[in-house]
Design a protein around this nucleic acid. Structure first.
Lengths: 139, 139
DNA sequence: TTAAGTGCAAAATCTTTGCAAATGT
DNA sequence: ACATTTGCAAAGATTTTGCACTTAA
């Protein structure tokens, strides 16, 4: 288990189970948004589908991960930054979804200013996705 | 059939079928992003599920609709503006997804400048979604 | 007339729920 | 020891595919 995974689980008061450790280590090692089907395949069916869904949901509720809705057909999850908690998220950066390889990465270098909303609308978090051809697939 | 629906179908060289007319009229009359399940319910099962999916896909490919990926569990579709075509989209406005009523509306008044991307990334279109509580649900 | 669109049956894929067994603290 | 987490079975929901029938132009 990586130090970062241990620290994240500890600081969010989560039990250190094998599934959580493996999922978190994988996401830390692969800096992009990951879906349950990808995880299941990557961890070669070491854990049940349901366990992975529940792990991703728990991590999202506790503020370790945030959902990234691209149009790939399944929900993806990416690591939160330090300022996130269970009540508030700060993901005002851009995500890039490649329509060729279907990968979605966080583009931390491109921040989007949270826009002012019309009266009556209150936003908790934002989902900014650019769709196109990524670096790797363009070649 | 509304004049706008007729004009949109004609200008995109699509045949005037009952399903297409009803779907397009509904979307024109309800200015928000709509999913297949919502459509099926709204049109009281007048058309088969598969027909609705194929209609939405055709409209998206031809540039009448654009996909809006919120995290509601099903893909939603909203009317394109005039500058869209089958090759390029221009939806640099914000969408608002209400986590209470699950409705997603286009906030045309809030434009987001398409950000400059890192070298090698090429974007066709953007999906900007704010999640929170909408006007109607806040009361 | 004929290419395109639709309905039905079936299947593939994604996601959730309930409950008993296993596990972390 | 006990609350939490996991696995399995099952079901629900979304989306796609194949093929015969129907329909717009």
């Amino acid at each position: 288990m990586s130090k970062r995974a241990l620290s994240l689980l500890k600081s969010h008061e989560l039990r250190l189970t094998d599934a959580r450790i493996d999922v978190l280590d994988f996401i830390i090692d692969h800096p992009r948004a990951i879906s349950q089907p990808e995880l299941e395949h990557a961890l070669v069916h070491k854990y049940d589908r349901v366990t992975l869904y529940r792990t991703l949901n728990t991590f999202t509720e506790k503020g370790l991960l945030h959902q990234v809705a691209d149009n790939s057909g399944s929900m993806k999850y990416a690591l939160c930054n330090e300022q996130c908690n269970e009540h508030e998220h700060h993901h005002e950066h851009l995500h890039f979804h490649c329509i060729r390889c279907q990968e979605t990465v966080c583009i931390d270098s491109v921040m989007i200013a949270p826009p002012a909303l019309p009266a009556g609308f209150q936003a908790n978090d934002f989902n900014f996705v650019a769709n196109g051809i990524c670096q790797k697939c363009a070649q």
